[in-house]
Design a protein around this nucleic acid. Sequence first.
RNA 1: GCGAAUAUGGUGAAGUGGUUAACACACCAGUUUGUGGCACUGGCAUGCGUGGGUUCGAUCCCCACUAUUCGCCCCA
Length: 455
Amino acid sequence: MIIKPKGTHDIYGKEAKKWKYIEKMFDSLMEKYNYNYIRTPIFESTELFHRSVGETTDIVSKETYDFCDRGNRNMTLRPEGTAGVVRSFIENKMYGDPNQPVKLYYNGTMYRYERPQSGRDRELTQFGVEVLGSDNPMIDAEVISIPVNLFKMLGLKGIKVRINTLGDSESRNNYREALLKHFKPYLKDLCEDCNNRYENNPLRILDCKVDKDHEALKNAPKTIDYLNDVSKKRFDDVKKYLTLLEVDYEVDPTLVRGLDYYNHTVFEIEADVEGFGSNNVLAAGGRYNGLVAMLDGPETPGIGFACGIGRLSMALDLEDVELPIDDGNEIYVMYVSDSEKEYAISLVQYLRMNGYKVETEYMSRALKGQFKQADRLDSKFLIILNDEDLKNDQLKVKNNKTKEEDLVPLDYILYYFDEKLNDEYGDFVSFEEDDDCDCGHDHEHCDGSCHHHHE
RNA sequence: GCGAAUAUGGUGAAGUGGUUAACACACCAGUUUGUGGCACUGGCAUGCGUGGGUUCGAUCCCCACUAUUCGCCCCA
């Protein structure tokens, strides 16, 4: 038997419905924020990630899926979403778009060659946004508010927003120097990992799990003290706007993101839920004002966030959040004889083409089994075909809840279901009515799905 | 890259160095020759992750491998 690659998952059944729901929710939220959907390739030139994410980071040095294509080009499966979007921004000269800033959102799979554990896979799905062209702190606050609002809409309660600022490159460098100076005398007391971090990414020492209680960490210099005035003002503005957006946050001076391209605002939204594993960051992001230029584009500010759907789904599970997913079937068509079966085939199509969710029997089950199957699918109505009724152009329809049966003339069947099923949703719209329907759009913009399905 | 635990049917799982591998759920069939969801009866792992070893004999003991899970590193 061939099995799935390590660190991958098949998303199907209930879980798939959940994902679809989350993605739909995000899509419609993005619609309201007026962001534009973008799809970029799942693989890109290896160089793109080396130059954006950072040559020295572990991500690039050992955690990417690299391959050489048949034309001998070095390719990498994208480990994150930002680099590809920024590449596209530059390549398609979106900086020349009169409509600035450029606000984009994406949703797709990412690949990281890592040892799988709770909340961490080799293939993961992330959605996120990137805003390019504005350095206004207002955008920082808005970008942070998007996942916060999404989580709120989904019904997730236990979340914690942590923010910090790295300042501009000048501030960041000063801070880095200060950290090196501060930790130098303590090196022999710190763990081996911290000694490595000292060399590679000293900011990371601050959130070491082993040495977290060490005095050297507790009285380490704070980013905030190394900000120049401009950076400080900027951060104050971001916080002010977050408050206006009613986003609860805490400033965490130890929060540093791993990638080289971040500066100024960085943030993480973590799941604050009992039972979550150690990888509890649901969404994260930050500002990357130097990245576009680093990738040969014009000097352009940018900011974004990404959110892993797998972890989000896990958080929803742990909080026992029931998403309002209605996957019940509307009509189940039952038959026994061959002539009834033939009738069923065209009837099912007729009903489906008229907007109903219809199932029928594919397993040659006895009538008893068909009833069971109809129940399993949570069918609201059953049509029990019977040669005798068909001779009289009638259909026997049974309400699966009340168990009432009606003999419905064939010509009347659409009106029958229109009344029964649409009334139940409280937004009855007759087929004869040509004017506005209740979906909120005017009629020509309505996609038709609203005539009996209403969110 | 490092460390730990686990591996029995469609699912949850019990179990033993030795004839037919519990039990429950799900599913299928029948009682009921075209109106079910209850009840009863019956069916449902030639097999206990893969390979090797110990043994008269292994699902059970040993070794290796693989996979899964959790943690470290790292973290988008």
